[in-house]
Amino acid sequence: MGPDEEDNNRWPPWMKPLLREQFFVQCKLHLDSHKSECNMYCLDCMNGALCSFCLAYHKDHRYIQIRRSSYHDVIRVSEIQKYLDISGIQTYVINSAKVVFINERPQPRPGKGVINNCEVCDRSLVDSFRFCSLGCKFVGTSKNLQNKRQMRMESGSEDSSFSSSHGKLKKKKKNDENNKVQSFSHLTTPPISINHRSAKRRKGIPHRAPMAQV
């Protein structure tokens, strides 16, 4: 079994479509209806975002409601934990309810004094969680990423030892070259010589001519 097959078995089939789906758009089937915003998702059909009127065609199906916080999609913990293991994901309290974010959120600057970060996007985390969202856990626990990390760590240690030794050799070589340049310039620079012929002679003390006698 390859890494991709293991990842597919670890996660439910609706996980990838959920992460890629765009919510809070107008429903194409109920354009004339009030409150036809697509903020529902059927875990059994996986046929895109749904509005509240679309749920009439999904009776006895499993579905979750998507909510918004600061222009980002979230799901209540009480809903998603029925179908998915959300351990290791940072939770937040919004409107008196615990939620998790669906996808990562850009963070231009890391938080000050924060020592715990998301393993995928490096977003600052308050507690000892590993991921900031469902999407980051999906990516961070995949076999392909873990293999890449292992290879990167191994190659990184080799590169660091190589770069360290290479840096020492390079520094030594540079010092040797500087010494050679200095010794070479010392040998090849002609000494400053004074040309006595071309040098200006200091004028002597002028002597007044003797006065003529009358």
Rank of each mutant, 00 (worst) to 15 (best):
S193W: 15
K172G: 05
H61R: 09
C38M: 10
E6H: 15
S193K: 15
V93M: 07
K168A: 08
N95W: 11
P190Q: 10
K112A: 07
E37M: 11
R123E: 02
N8P: 00
D44W: 13
N147I: 12
K137E: 02
V100L: 07
F24A: 03
C132A: 05
N8D: 13
G111T: 08
E21S: 01
G111C: 02
F23V: 01
L145Y: 08
R149A: 04
L55A: 04
E37Y: 07
N178S: 04
G111W: 07
V74H: 01
G204N: 07
G88P: 03
I102Q: 10
D7E: 10
M46G: 00
F129I: 00
V25D: 03
Q26V: 09
F24Q: 03
G156E: 12
S161C: 05
A212E: 10
D127W: 13
T188S: 05
K170N: 07
K171E: 01
V114K: 10
F53D: 00
S128K: 15
C51M: 06
N103L: 10
G167I: 11
L125D: 03
K112I: 12
F184T: 05
K143S: 13
M15T: 15
N175S: 06
C51P: 03
C27H: 05
K98R: 12
V100R: 00
C27A: 04
R62S: 12
E119V: 04
Y83Q: 04
S155Y: 15
K16D: 04
N9V: 14
F129R: 02
M153F: 12
H196W: 15
G113V: 08
P13H: 11
K59L: 07
H207Q: 02
V74F: 01
H34T: 13
L84K: 02
K137T: 01
S96I: 13
P3D: 05
R62L: 11
Q182W: 12
E154W: 10
L125V: 02
I86G: 01
K98F: 12
R109C: 03
R197E: 04
K172Q: 11
S160M: 09
V74K: 01
D73P: 03
V25T: 14
R208N: 03
S185T: 12
F101A: 00
P110W: 12
K180C: 05
H186E: 04
A56E: 11
C42K: 11
C27I: 05
G113A: 08
A199F: 13
E154L: 06
A56M: 08
H30R: 07
V120S: 01
C136H: 02
S185G: 00
S69G: 01
H58E: 01
R62H: 15
L55I: 13
S163G: 00
H34A: 13
G111L: 07
R68C: 01
P12V: 14
V100G: 01
E177M: 03
R197A: 04
K174H: 07
G113Q: 09
T189F: 06
P12H: 14
I115V: 11
V93E: 11
K170A: 11
D127E: 11
P206Q: 02
L31M: 10
P110L: 14
E158Q: 12
E158N: 09
V126N: 06
A199L: 14
L31E: 14
R10H: 12
S185L: 10
